[in-house]
Computed example of a mutant assay.
Amino acid sequence: MFPILPTIFEDSGAIDFTGTRAVLEYILAAGADGIVFPGLASEYDMLSTDERLQMTVKLGEWIAGRVPLVIGASSADPELAMQFARAGAKAGAVASMVLTPHRHAKNRQAMADYFAAIHEASGIPVMLQNAPAPMGVGLAVDEVAWLAEQVPGIRYVKEETQPSGQRITQLSERAGDALDAVFGGAGARYVIDELVRGAKGTMPACEVTEVHVAMLKCFADGDIDGARTLFERSLPLLSVQAVFRWRLTKAVLKRRGLIASDHVRAPGPALDAFDQSEVDALLARIADLVPLDRVPGATAA
């Protein structure tokens, strides 16, 4: 379980480092196996280069080796992608997660060279994030497998192009030893199917981390029914998250007392009064799993 750490902002739009660290400590206290930053759920494309580099340094200091860090190095500019990956390696990251670049969508070799350059620049493994358009390219399974075979530095894939379960099965069979692990994503909305098919984990948004941690533990312990029960109970909230993305994540984190502001920079639909009431109703139904008034690690050190 490697949740995506969101970037928390003040009402002014400036980064709230205290709030971001509070969310990080909550994720770790909830039992996550690692942290990913920045990802799509971090509003990474709304952060300046300096902000991303500053956050990378701070995460290295805050995490201090407690869990693995996967640094998001996606950028339309390959030089920046290499810079982000190098900064991640310096901060102790174990891998860089990189979206498939649109500029090389029709050129396999150019894409292979792009990923190879990022690996060479940083010295840490690459996790190829295969997200669908418009965020990524949505490569075919054979293309992803070919890249893994051609670029030894690609050791992981985060598969988010649908149907993700089928693609994880096919990719595991096709790539073989060229990959160490395939992870699921898409907010953990398909996590049980992905795990059954051989995914080694998932990288969802973080607002219900303890539920996802418990779900994966049940699955690992052979309690598939228990894992499915947790999945079914969390799915209505995750369905809302599929529409409102980071706004839903921050709305829940604010209700949990972790952040002071639910400000977002990224465009997208806002929660209106009816949506807010629906979120309250959905959270009330899983209050035993996601308490709003007692959150482990809510106070940042």
Rank of each mutant, 00 (worst) to 15 (best):
R255E: 02
A251L: 02
A287P: 00
A220R: 15
N130I: 09
K90F: 00
G31F: 07
E207P: 12
A140D: 11
Y156N: 06
D113Y: 05
M111D: 08
A181K: 02
G185D: 02
A281I: 01
D142M: 06
G176Y: 07
M135K: 09
R256I: 05
A105H: 09
I168T: 07
H102C: 04
G198Y: 01
H263D: 00
A270D: 14
Q129W: 03
P38T: 13
A89T: 01
F9T: 02
A73D: 02
S172C: 11
P134D: 03
I4R: 01
D280E: 07
V182W: 00
G19P: 04
A298H: 09
T7A: 14
G201Q: 10
P163T: 14
D113C: 04
M97Y: 04
V213D: 06
P204N: 10
A270K: 12
W246K: 15
V141W: 00
A220T: 09
Q241R: 11
D180Q: 14
R66F: 00
L139Q: 08
H212A: 00
P269Y: 03
A110I: 07
L292V: 05
A220P: 08
L53K: 08
A121Y: 00
R189K: 13
L179M: 03
G184C: 06
R256D: 04
P125V: 03
W62H: 02
E61F: 09
V137T: 02
A32V: 05
D33F: 12
L171H: 05
E207N: 13
K106Y: 14
D113R: 11
V290N: 08
Q109Y: 09
V57N: 02
N107F: 13
T209D: 07
D142S: 15
D293T: 15
A220E: 12
I224A: 08
G34T: 10
V126I: 15
P68F: 02
G92K: 04
T18I: 14
D45C: 08
T202S: 12
E159H: 03
E120K: 15
D177L: 08
K58T: 00
V208K: 00
T100D: 10
A93I: 06
R174A: 14
I63M: 11
R189I: 11
G165Q: 13
W146H: 13
G138R: 07
G13T: 10
M135W: 12
S234N: 13
K200C: 01
A251H: 11
V243H: 10
P291R: 06
G165L: 01
L230G: 10
F274Y: 07
A73F: 01
L195H: 11
E194F: 00
D280K: 03
Q162G: 07
R285A: 15
F231Y: 15
R86P: 02
R21P: 09
D177K: 15
V151P: 12
A266R: 15
M215I: 07
V213M: 09
A300Y: 13
A178M: 00
M82R: 15
K250P: 12
V290T: 15
M111C: 13
L69P: 09
A131W: 05
V137W: 01
S261E: 10
G92Q: 05
A41I: 06
D113W: 07
P296M: 12
